[in-house]
Nucleic acid binder design. Structure first.
Lengths: 216, 216
DNA sequence: GCACACTTCAAATGCTCATTTGAGAGGAGA
DNA sequence: TCTCCTCTCAAATGAGCATTTGAAGTGTGC
């Protein structure tokens, strides 16, 4: 006689998904077990029963998120494609992941949150994900940058690219206040990507050249 | 017979400064009045006496920080200097403010925190500060960018510049884990600034040009 | 000395929240 | 039917915290 919805899916599973959302929205500390259980339509003791405590729930959420988004890389471009194309593909897929409100939506938010305000249990996992992403962009930049570029130059370029992308998530609250008429969401990704690609390609190529930027 | 240090300065003043630090370190919610009072060597009821409550203390801290750092603009460059020079000066002073551990040190941290995770009482004030900074960079970019650039192009360039700078604060925890040997602090500002200037100048100039970035 | 305002203090007070408890519901196997 | 075993539930429990209280200190003008 139980209703077919809600109760139907495993409580543990529902908790996991809802917890991901709530942690992403509020952060580890500000998220309350009460809210997670309310949204998951579960009893407040369910978290303890299934996960032990809040921290363990958080850790499990991260692992779950990782296996949910197994392909960090953009699928729609061949590894042997020219570097420009791969850069464009990376930036687009990175932005999409940052903005997406879909299935593993909260993962991007969660990562962004962890980046600026890490919690103890996560260090290693963040690093694994971030390092992979970093290495891919590094390879691209290395192809594009001039021969005069040092390792430091390459790293700086990678961080410039990632910085531009992450900005739109990290500072989203500021952007919506600064430009109330101008949305910055999933819809605008192609447009944003176009700019970041053009800007970054020029920046990367300039980095390779021996002459300095302003003081000739 | 009271010791000459500690007690000497006004309790209210000490609370204000210490609270700035603590809020910057932990965020509004995670900061506890207990810790603020302990560090300020004040009784726990002092906050209520001098400020009413935690929120009002926070608001006062922001105002205090603003008047502490009245000159948001880099002082060491004339408004009529060439745009390249002004861009360099802006980027350097922005980075310094983000990294500085000096007097109004926590202000940068606090702003960074507010940007990604705003608290209700602050919206307006953040906007005032951010808008000023934005307008200055906008003017610089407008001079540098080609005539073919739209308003959207200009804005995107400004955000690319700010994004690159803010990245080093927002993602500092990630950077220290990703590159344990490579510090990213106050000391490295000139180096970082040099890269960001070169990268951004090229990016901005490329944005003005009609041809697309990748398909040349 | 004496009243008075301004500050500080230690000890409540009460709220929110994570965690625990102990009592069941439901189903599977004998 | 009886017995486990798994899972859910409502109601404690107790910790951490912001806020309040009422009793002192401390100085200033008289």
């Amino acid at each position: 006689m139980t209703p077919p919805s809600g109760r139907s899916r495993d409580t543990r599973q529902r908790l996991l998904e809802v917890a991901g959302e709530v942690f992403a929205e509020r952060g580890f500390r500000d998220a309350t077990i009460q809210e997670i259980c309310r949204r998951a339509d579960a009893n407040i003791a369910a978290v303890h029963y299934h996960f032990g405590d809040k921290e363990e729930l958080y850790r499990t959420v991260i692992q779950y998120a990782e296996q949910c988004a197994p392909e960090n890389a953009p699928a729609d471009v061949a590894p042997e494609a020219p570097a420009e194309k791969r850069l464009r593909a990376h930036i687009e897929s990175f932005l999409v992941r940052l903005f997406d409100e879909g299935q593993p939506a909260w993962f991007g938010k969660l990562m962004a949150r962890e980046m600026s305000d890490p919690t103890p249990g996560l260090d290693v996992i963040v690093q694994e994900k971030v390092r992979v992403s970093y290495r891919r962009v590094e390879a691209i930049v290395r192809e594009l940058v001039g021969s005069g570029a040092s390792d430091d130059d390459v790293r700086a370029c990678v961080l410039s690219v990632q910085g531009q992308c992450l900005f739109y998530r990290h500072c989203h609250p500021v952007l919506t206040r600064l430009f109330p008429d101008r949305p910055f969401g999933r819809e605008e990704v192609p447009e944003l990507a176009r700019h970041i690609v053009r800007f970054s390609l020029a920046g990367i190529r300039a980095t390779g050249r021996p002459r300095k930027g302003a003081a000739g």
